[in-house]
Design a protein around this nucleic acid. Structure first.
Lengths: 151, 151
DNA sequence: GGAATTTACTTGAGAAACTTACTTAAGTTT
DNA sequence: AAACTTAAGTAAGTTTCTCAAGTAAATTCC
């Protein structure tokens, strides 16, 4: 059996739809939630770094971070290594928002997975490490401060 | 081995991020693309049905469909079975937009999957039918006009 | 070692994308 | 056939983004 990427892509598209359309209890826009997710899963980041991952202008990131800060979901802290830069840290409240949404996804997915056969559940379990590896190839987990590549 | 839903949820979240942040060449907003995706994968739908799947107000759907129509990506057609309703059909151009984005995802995912070991690729291939089934449990493929459930 | 350039962020004005509230018209109920 | 419900469109206002310009810290380069 060989891996059909087209089929995998279609399935992942559907999971994406399931994942996104959760009731946004906190009145935060899609992009704002995405920024908070990035901070919560990847740790503190500069505005510039967020600009790169979120596909909006740097100006939009400034405004989004300002809004998140007003709501107490992130903190701005000076970057000790660069006086121009700012590190945006998620607060416990901010992390709780993301965790809450994840919990909701887990609840829903659990309910669905219970309806699979044991063999199907087994197959997914067996593939999980490979799927995690695939994800990691695309977005290697960043440490707090990544060293620039050697010249 | 038993299926860890929490881990699966986290992995799927990361795929979601990969999937969304494609350069939107067509100048269409996220929600607008989502509507087009729905029509392209699920077939013609009423505005009311789109309201349910997209988590925006019915008014927003009207505006989005109007925009898509101006751009030649969908057509409005009267619903023969209900004079109040309209069925929104994707045009070939509309379908092409969605297919183009999928092609880009396939290209990227192919490049990543090539870096997995054969055993990893095999594991994902073996899990694919189960993943497809899981997705289908959440959003059964709608026929053109679904009969209401028997009372 | 100090001017010129680049990098990191902010601000303000305006465009785009949504929401709320209302309207019109077709179907349903009694 | 009058009263109600459902499907869609419209108008006005808010929120969210982009573009352009501005400030301040770091870097480059004579």
């Amino acid at each position: 059996m060989t891996l059909r990427i087209t089929e995998l892509t279609r399935v992942l598209e559907e999971f994406t739809r399931m994942s996104i359309r959760l009731p946004a209890a906190q009145r935060l826009s899609f992009t704002t939630l995405s920024v908070l997710h990035t901070l919560s899963t990847r740790g503190p980041k500069r505005l510039t770094e967020l600009t790169a991952t979120e596909q909006v202008t740097q100006s939009a990131i400034t405004q989004i971070v300002t809004k998140l800060e007003r709501e107490g979901l992130v903190r701005r802290e000076p970057d000790p290594t660069d006086g121009r830069a700012i590190l945006v840290h998620p607060t416990p409240a901010g992390t709780a928002v993301i965790d809450g949404r994840r919990d909701e996804r887990i609840r829903r997915l659990t309910a669905l997975a219970e309806r699979l056969t044991p063999a199907e559940q087994e197959a997914i379990a067996a593939a999980l490490p490979a799927l995690a590896h695939l994800v990691e190839l695309s977005a290697p987990p960043t440490t707090h401060r990544s060293a620039p590549p050697a010249p």
